[in-house]
Write a protein that binds this DNA or RNA. Sequence first.
RNA 1: GCGCCCAUAGCUCAAUUGGAUAGAGUGCUUGGCUACGGACCAGGAGGUUUGGGGUUCGAAUCCCUAUGGGCGUACCA
Length: 551
Amino acid sequence: MKEKILNALTEAVNELLGSSCDEIKLSLTVPKDNSHGDFSSNAAMIIAKKIGKSPRDTATVIVNSLNEKISNIASCEIAGPGFINFKLSGDAGAQIFLQLFNTGEKIGLSNTGNGKRVNIEYVSANPTGPLSVGHGRNAAVGDVIANLYKAVGYDVTREYYFNDAGNQMTVLANSVRTRYLQLLGVEVELDENAYQGEYIIDIAQAIKNEHSDFLKDTDELNIFKKYAVDAMFDMIKVSLKKMCVEHDVYFNERSLYDDGKIEETLQKIDKLGLSYKKDDAIWFKAMQFGAEKDRVLVKSTGEPTYRLPDIAYHVDKFKRNYDLIVDIFGADHQAQYPDVIACLKAMDLDEKKVKVVIYQFVTIVKDGEAVKMSTRKANYITLDELMDDVGVDATRYFFVMRRLGSHLEFDIELARKHSLDNPVFYVQYAHARISSIFRHCAEKKPDICLDKIDAENINPALLTEQEEIDLISHVAQFKDTISIAAKTCEPHRLTGYLEKIAELFHRYYNLHHVVVDDDEVTKARLALVILTQRVIKNGLEILGVNAPEKM
RNA sequence: GCGCCCAUAGCUCAAUUGGAUAGAGUGCUUGGCUACGGACCAGGAGGUUUGGGGUUCGAAUCCCUAUGGGCGUACCA
């Protein structure tokens, strides 16, 4: 329906301009105020200048030409400064309703991605400790974005990139060894910048249990390192599983060295004339790409910095032939990707395929106060503790409900609450309530079988209440909401949408009964709430949140 | 100093990416259960969108500028 109107509109504008208007983006949106019709376009205001007329005059011309084209579907009129508002006519609304109903369980899903391959890298925490709430936002955002892409027909790969070598691992291994020695009664102090969490002691204890004091005098750090890494990854994977996050690929940075990809990338950069030697180190000419100074790729010790493997890693992703590469980073990583992008571009790779999603930090609010956090010190709330406290549903939901650019205040008390001010429960409650209508209906009117309600035997013309019309009109926007959320990588659009749907439903529920004396009206209304429930269910599924039948 | 992000109701946040009268929740306040689940709903008050300029038919949104915050700014990852 929308397509038809948009086509007609495009055609009308083309006729007026005498040429194609491809480069102009005509919008056809659903206005928030329904007195402005079912659809609205700004076409006249955009092209008014080009043809040298006032917006309203332009609109008049467009409307005249449009009326012939779409007289059977909709009427249009001019409003405000030159908006063209469309009002669907006759049974167009009913047709839309039936169409939506016929899409069945899959409502909202589409295939606009057409099987294109997208790689989404998220979490990517190195195995140095339990996942923090910061990782939690990363995990939830990445996972929901992955689900969104899947919902619009992409072939999605979920990837976790990690590094279990280097300086941080040595610090970790040393921390474990110190704790181990302490357990054996040796008087040693924990180094100042060592990892101080309780979990280090647990690992040390495990080593002691297995090896007794045989490792007391060894200088070999590797055994401590291996123990620590394995233990950390176990912890991390348990947390992620609890959160219903599962990656398809775990990509170890070290493999880039083993496969010679680091060397290969370095040579390529050199060949392009983008690197030089100075003070025994190899530098990347980042200034050519707007950076304030050049960056080191390989230290004078011969060791690469993090930058080089990052570049090699992205080159590898390109080789794996993805149409889209999405990186989910916290704000503390925002400085590192421009170099990578610049380098990819220089290598003649299409850097537009890389989409870097940066989210701002999380503040945990407990008892009305912000909880300060530090990874090295032990005084932080882990993701596990958070999930145990407020539940997985609330955890996931809260992490994605804000725009990524804004800081997220995670209010633990609010997340725990089972009442309307907690948006998760508000939405879930709407879903459960609809199930309860079905239960009630089965009891009251056993003749009406839910499974037998289909487009053939319902009459949408009976849905005339304002609350019903509002609900239908919002349900109709589900698909667009998902595709916009996917395209922009903005999961909060979906939570906002679901809250709106839930609100419209609760209002409807309070004012009108679904199961009434008249069987025909009952069936039409049942169809509407079935549709509503499907929308909520699919929406929650994308968020990775349960849609309960009872609460 | 420089770079990126941010500033919207007392508080936490939206605003279909430049659209029409800036909306929700919370808090304050008034009302609604003989009802498919009151874990709900309806109403009221609350705003110069941090200040100041600019761009245009039209700005919370884009540009400049001032102020205030977050994160970066390593031959750490």
